[in-house]
């Protein structure tokens, strides 16, 4: 019985030990689906399963998160969230038949799992993700620490999996700081 909690800790420890890596400003592959031009000298930091996370000033202040192919029936955020949060099987799930409207809602509900409040979306519209038909919207929320955040989400369903790039930052300063660079990063997406 005592070994079980220790075993559960192993993935967390592995993530915690993963190194912070500087992203070179050359073309970078995101999984095996697409590549981007980073535009900035981001640092890649440890992230949840299925995600890559890059930041300049610290992930709590600004970050680009690459969601690398959520399969049908999977949650966007897997792994431990917080005490009292629903287990993976009770979290909002991606479904391949989802419309962009459903996906925007999926993001909002997934961010609510972290006790973020006042979650709103704006500007949902169709947009190419590389050469794929995709979508884009903006999102705002207040973190449990009271920080007002803003995010830009662009994504598409590619081969029945949800791929998305989420650029988020503190609304007051950090989000506008790298927004132009992230816009260029998004237009640089090339499917592999």
């Amino acid at each position: 019985m005592r070994t079980l909690p220790l075993l559960l800790l192993v993935p967390v420890l592995v993530i915690a030990c993963a190194p912070v890596k500087l992203i070179e400003n050359t073309r970078v592959s995101i999984g095996d689906t697409y590549s981007v031009d980073p535009q900035l000298r981001w640092a890649s930091v440890p992230a949840r399963p299925g995600l890559d996370l890059w930041t300049v000033d610290g992930a709590a202040l600004d970050s680009v998160m690459f969601i690398k192919g959520v399969a049908d029936g999977e949650a966007v955020f897997r792994g431990p969230i917080r005490s009292g949060a629903p287990d993976d099987d009770k979290r909002p799930k991606f479904r391949t038949e989802m419309t962009p409207s459903d996906i925007a809602e999926l993001f909002v509900d997934s961010y609510a799992l972290f006790r973020n409040q006042k979650l709103e979306t704006a500007g949902l519209r169709p947009e190419k993700f590389g050469t794929e038909d995709g979508f884009r919207f903006e999102m705002t929320w207040v973190t449990p620490a009271g920080l007002e955040m803003q995010a830009l989400v662009a994504g598409a369903i590619i081969k029945k999996r949800l791929h998305a790039v989420v650029y988020s930052g503190a609304r007051a300063h950090y989000f506008p700081k790298y927004r132009d660079a992230v816009e260029k990063l998004l237009t640089s997406i090339k499917l592999q």
Binding site: L124, R125, P126
Partner: peptide, 10 residues
Amino acid sequence: AQDGAMIRDY
């Protein structure tokens, strides 16, 4: 509507 462009696409 904030999502008017998407709805018009549908």
